[in-house]
Design a binder for these strands. Structure first.
Lengths: 238, 238
DNA sequence: TAGTGGTCTAGACCACCGG
DNA sequence: CGGTGGTCTAGACCACTAT
């Protein structure tokens, strides 16, 4: 600690975080100003600011102009999830990817789908049902609704060949997305599609996207039995 | 665009991201050096670096020293999940929180639990089973294993009153965590505990934490029927 | 080894918001 | 209004790694 020791913002973060873990400051407490940390730790204010921003992003502290920096009152476990294109997810596991379009038609959406997309009036949407396979076994069933008003060029895509999942992710960036994760029991149809016992517990990822205020698509991705979504957290305290 | 317009790193990010969305650069392409962007966009290199870091964190580009900056080849949907303390999650919904310890004992863990924690030798662990309630209805069942070697002071906690969940999150920071999300079908016991039909599909959050290399705890949090985990993404393209 | 991103500094000004 | 965090700049040096 005597040697300046090639200070870096990670060391500064570690030093400050250490004080928090050591309970030098308790949840709700106000921390010293950045400038004071800078003097005490022997670095510039910008470096403290870099460390503090990281602590704020990770949820350890909250910062308010004029108010100052406070130790977070309600700790949360903050994780980052990556949801890849399904084909890449399958291939990443070393499995052979397969894809099959089940159905595709223009139809009026049910109320819950219209609500998800925030559609005030009932318009016909493009509904796509498709199956993704890993090593010839069902991997994920995709029940998708696309807004042709927002995505007119979906009409030019050969959905027999290219999955709507991949085409949309690659070609239609979104500005906002809602994600939901939950579990459902397989009904007879889902059981048949996913090769699961009727009643089997299935993990579901539901995703709805917008570009600006215009809804793009909403998809209910029902995974085959045994599917798990994984992630890891590396805390700043290394 | 003529006026420098109080440039900020968010505008720089937007400008660069715009070029990506406009397909000026395709996935895999190498982007200009930061310094060139700085000259072109009329800001300092540090500002470009701030914008680029944000694009890298959000997954839009990949940066390598000496190599340069590249448009990401495999787009992913990257979401941030906040998993709060269960009590706060319930209270956040405006419901009355309740808690009940179901069981607590020292016992040898089964192989899968030992594997999760990375324990090479079989040692007795503290197993805690507890129920969390929302408005007097079962909300979440917590099946937890704690390593007393790592967390000896768990012995002093009155687990009848305070949930292990809350005590650990508040008092035992971790340096690494594994998270899994999946679905299971309720067996008779879970059905009884969570007031669910046997066979009902239940959403499960499994979390294992370490401090350094020492395992702290692993918990299987089984949620009551209807539970959904939600999150939102706000893209940089605003 | 050279090119690129990553970081640090000192100083300045701005934006927000609590008192 | 004043204090605090947020950002920008110009320049310098460092760290990594592709060539």
């Amino acid at each position: 600690m005597n040697r300046p020791e090639r200070t870096s913002w990670k060391e500064i973060r570690k030093a400050i975080h250490g004080r928090l873990l050591n309970a030098d400051y308790l949840p709700g407490d106000r921390l010293p100003r950045d400038e004071d940390w800078a003097r005490e730790l022997g670095c510039s204010r910008a470096t403290v600011q870099r460390a503090m921003r990281d602590l704020a992003v990770s949820g350890a502290v909250e910062r308010r102009r004029k108010g100052g920096t406070f130790v977070s009152v309600n700790p949360v476990t903050r994780a980052t999830l990556d949801i890849p294109i399904t084909r890449l997810e399958v291939e990443e596991k070393g499995a052979l990817y397969g894809y099959q379009l089940v159905d595709r038609k223009m139809v009026l959406p049910p109320a819950n789908v219209a609500a998800r997309l925030g559609l005030s009036r009932a318009r016909r949407l493009l509904r796509i049902e498709a199956l993704h396979f890993a090593d010839h076994r069902p991997y994920l069933f995709e029940d998708r609704w696309v807004c042709p008003q927002t995505v007119p060029d979906i009409a030019d895509v050969d959905l027999e060949t290219e999955s709507a999942n991949e085409w949309l992710v690659r070609n239609k960036p979104f500005s906002r997305a809602d994600l939901r994760f939950y579990a459902i029991a397989a009904d007879d149809r889902l059981g048949g599609l996913l090769d699961a016992e009727p009643g089997a517990a299935l993990f579901v990822i539901e995703r709805t996207t917008w570009i600006g205020d215009a809804p793009i698509t909403t998809v209910t991705a029902v995974t085959a039995p045994g599917y798990q979504l994984l992630t890891q957290i590396q805390s700043a305290t290394l």
